[in-house]
């Protein structure tokens, strides 16, 4: 049980991922689905950043840094890459939803006849 209290950021990212999976599985609105995918990305980013944290660590930037250990830097850099990719993919997905709305007249993936099945 104390393990849960210690690892709370990891558990929080897992719960965020679970909520995002709920949204992706059960919501039929395409916009909400994209929100779920964005939440999933946030959960993964939170997990990666939390992996590299050291207790009492500073951000790994040497400009006027107070004394102390430094947080691992490679997870942060890869999270930065991941955020940029998420923005790009999100823009592309939203454009596809606009396209779907113009073509089928609905953004509900069950009601729209062409997307059913």
């Amino acid at each position: 049980m104390e393990n849960i209290a210690d690892n709370f950021p990891f558990v929080a990212s897992a719960l965020l991922l679970a909520v995002a999976f709920y949204i992706v599985i059960f919501r039929k609105n395409l916009i909400k689905l994209i929100m779920g995918i964005a939440m999933m990305a946030s959960g993964v980013n939170l997990f990666i950043v939390a992996l590299g944290y050291r207790t009492g660590g500073n951000a790994p930037i040497y400009t006027d840094v107070p004394p102390g250990p430094m947080v691992l830097s490679v997870p942060q850099a890869l999270t930065l890459t991941s955020i940029v990719i998420n923005v790009a993919v999100l823009a592309l997905m939203l454009t596809m939803v606009i396209h779907t709305y113009r073509n089928t007249g609905d953004i509900d993936s069950e009601k729209s006849r062409k997307l059913k099945g």
């Binding site: 040497y62 400009t63 107070p66 004394p67």
Partner: peptide, 9 residues
């Protein structure tokens, strides 16, 4: 090349 360790940039 900046001095190693904390410096003022």
């Amino acid at each position: 090349i900046p001095p190693t360790g904390p410096n003022s940039g």
